[in-house]
Design a protein around this nucleic acid. Structure first.
Lengths: 211, 211
DNA sequence: GTCTATAGTGAGATAGAC
DNA sequence: GTCTATCTCACTATAGAC
C-alpha cells in the first residue's frame, strides 16, 4: 500500500506513450520517439512490452480502466433513470475534462478499427472486455429510462452512439474546437459551458416533457 | 461537358487514396500501397502531386467540396430555422450514408490537428477555406433559430459541436458501430433508423416545445 | 506521363554483453 | 533491466531514361 515516489519505467513508458498516441495516433508515433521521451533506449521498450501493438493496447486499456473506475460508483437501477443519467454525464464529463488524452484515445479506439496490424493480442482482448462492460452499463441505463417511460422510446444503440458523439468528440476536437469556441476547450470556463450545454441538450432530447 | 468514360490517373489516385486514408489515416498508409492500388509506379504519384501531404490535403478538399455542394442548395434565412434544420440534416445524412469514406475523413480532419508534418501547403489552405464556409452556414442557421425564438437559447458553437458528434461520428464508427447496432451501419435499414433517431433527438433537444 | 534505379532515412524488432 | 550493435524492411523523395 506504500505509494512509490517515482514511477516505474513501465509506468513512465505508458505515460509518454499515452500522450504521443493520443496526439498522433498509432502509426504516427515511432518507438524511437517514445524511447527518448521515456529516457530509455529503444531496446528497453521491448523488455516491458512485447511489441508496439501490445504497448498501444496497454495504453488504451489503462485509459478504459480509469474511465470504468470513475463511472462505476454511479447508482444502480433503484434510482430513476433520469437521475442516473445526470450523474453519469457529470462523471463522464469530469473524466474527459481532466486529461486531454482520454477523449482522443477513446475516439481513436472507437472509430479506428484495424489500426493495429496484429490481431488476437491478449492486451487487445483485455481492452475490449473493459470497453464492453462500460457500454453495457450505459445501455442498461437507457433501456431502464425507456422502460420506465421517463425517456422517449429511443433506440438504445443509437442513443449510445449519440451520447458518445456529443461527449467524447468535443473534447477530442483539439485546435478545431478551440477555434470554434474562441477559447481553450479544457479551460474551466469552457468545460463548465460544455457541461451545461450537453446536459441541457440531452435532457431535452431524451426525457419525456411532462414526466 | 463530355463525360470521360475512364477516370484520369489523377482521379484514380485520389479515389484509392481516399479509401486508404479514410481507413488507416495519413501515417498509416504508404505511397507504395497507393501506387499499387492505382496501378502506377510510386514515382508516378509525384508527377501528379508534389508530396504525400499535398495528396492528403487534396483528398480532404475533394471530400469537403462534395459536402459543400450537397449542403448548398438548402434554403436561406427566409425559411424558418426549424425547416432549414430538417433539410440540412437530411442532406448531411444523405452524404454521409452514401460514401463510407466521407465521415471518417471528416472526423480525422476535425480532430487530428497536426497530423501533417508540413504546414503552409496551398492545398491545406484551400481545404480550410472550404471547411470554414460550411461551418459558417450551419452556425448561421443555429443563430437564426435562437434569434427567432424557435430554438432554445443554446451556444451556437457548442451546438455545432454536438451536431458534428451526433452525425459524423456515428457513420465513422465502423466495426464498433456495427457491433453495437447488430447490423451494418450503411445498410438501408440502419441509415433510415439513424436518420429518424438523429432528427428526433435534435428536434427535441433544440426546438422550443410549443413553438 | 510513366518507368527503373536509387538515394537517404527511419521504422520495428532481435542478439547478446553487462 | 538496460545497453550497443545490428538486421531487415519500408518509407518519402529524386534522377534521369524513354
Amino acid at each position: 500500500m506504500t505509494a512509490p515516489p517515482s514511477p516505474s519505467s513501465r509506468d513512465k513508458i505508458l505515460d509518454v506513450a499515452e500522450a504521443r498516441f493520443a496526439q498522433r495516433g498509432y502509426s504516427g508515433v515511432g518507438l524511437r520517439e517514445l524511447a527518448e521521451a521515456a529516457e530509455l533506449s529503444k531496446s528497453s521498450l521491448f523488455h516491458h512490452f512485447p511489441s508496439k501493438a501490445a504497448l498501444y493496447c496497454s495504453v488504451l486499456d489503462r485509459v478504459l480502466q480509469r474511465l470504468a473506475a470513475r463511472l462505476a460508483p454511479a447508482p444502480g437501477p433503484q434510482t430513476t433513470a433520469a437521475a442516473r443519467l445526470e450523474i453519469l454525464l457529470d462523471a463522464l464529463l469530469d473524466v474527459l475534462a481532466e486529461q486531454a488524452t482520454t477523449s482522443r484515445l477513446l475516439l481513436r479506439a472507437l472509430f479506428e478499427d484495424d489500426d493495429l496490424p496484429e490481431e488476437g493480442l491478449p492486451e487487445a482482448d483485455a481492452m475490449n472486455a473493459t470497453l464492453t462492460g462500460i457500454l453495457a452499463a450505459v445501455r442498461g441505463l437507457i433501456e431502464q429510462g425507456v422502460a420506465e417511460g421517463s425517456f422517449r422510446p429511443v433506440s438504445p444503440a443509437h442513443t449510445l452512439q449519440s451520447l458518445i458523439g456529443i461527449t467524447i468528440y468535443h473534447f477530442a476536437s483539439g485546435d478545431f474546437g478551440e477555434e470554434l469556441l474562441g477559447q481553450p476547450i479544457f479551460s474551466a470556463a469552457a468545460v463548465q459551458e460544455r457541461r451545461e450545454e450537453v446536459k441541457a441538450f440531452v435532457r431535452h432530447g431524451l426525457l419525456i416533457r411532462d414526466a
